[in-house]
Design a protein around this nucleic acid. Sequence first.
DNA 1: CCTAAGAAGTTGAAAGGTGAACGAATGGTG
DNA 2: CACCATTCGTTCACCTTTCAACTTCTTAGG
Lengths: 158, 158
Amino acid sequence: METETAPQWLTDEEQCAWRTHVEVNRMLTYQLEKDLQPFNLTMNDYDILVHLSESDELRMRMSDLAAATLQSKSRLSHQITRMENAGLVRRENCESDRRGLYTVLTEEGMETMQKVAPHHVASVRRHFVDLVSPEALGELHKALTPIAEHLRSQRGKP
Amino acid sequence: METETAPQWLTDEEQCAWRTHVEVNRMLTYQLEKDLQPFNLTMNDYDILVHLSESDELRMRMSDLAAATLQSKSRLSHQITRMENAGLVRRENCESDRRGLYTVLTEEGMETMQKVAPHHVASVRRHFVDLVSPEALGELHKALTPIAEHLRSQRGKP
DNA sequence: CCTAAGAAGTTGAAAGGTGAACGAATGGTG
DNA sequence: CACCATTCGTTCACCTTTCAACTTCTTAGG
């Protein structure tokens, strides 16, 4: 039995909006990454530092950190090894679950964070936030919210 | 001489909007990539097929394709080698500039494109376009346009 | 012309990412 | 308690991306 349906192509407006969105993301990622380079950090590094610095006791379980930063355990494991070698974080055993580990922000990691954050924020302003009015930013946020919710609900489905 | 300035942190609204934007992008990329997997294509592959299929004579110079898809020449070269092995494209010499090469869409590449496109479009609808009203999509587009322009103007600066 | 500067693309090694398989530890169930 | 499914995090083999070096060709200037 055929269940073929005529494809529901995008209208011109939809296509334009979609392509702009994709393009902005790629270029934005590129710029932010570039602005972090002088500090020898990637966005991935930075993201992890942010999560740790905002968490209780400056530490997070590997799994939680992987979920929070939307990456696989495998990738995070490699990533943390690199950051450990760079002195930004340190692994620490978990008392309550001996399979588990904490990633802990080191003093040096914290200092790096504090040094870099203003530059990164400036970069986000320069390439994104300050380019649109607060109202437009609000609209943007409102438009993206249902999408974010949908995508969160999809995570790890068939 | 100190040129230190108090960092201009993001307001709560700005931060929320920004974080949502980043999160949407990561999750969306993940989903779209996943929806292409059954066809043995990555978004990078697909993007290249789209560019070729929309270009004159179904062919583009390597450099132009690299610029259009926002990747380095080196990366594109490896990428095209893989796609060539998969039979989707073929390299062809350029008469007018003997340093140059064309990437040409093959018959098989075209067929793949036609087979996959409806699914990909459906995926874009399901995870993005259809989740917001046409008005909201318009607002989103309007908000992103100045950002896109700014970023285009930044490409390859110091 | 001839030459030097530079553009087009490729290459190979090193770094980063992926996914399956693994050992260790946990926790619910009979 | 003993079992087995499940979770935690790492590791291995394999693939992709990056970066710098390189070849070949073009082009602008003397």
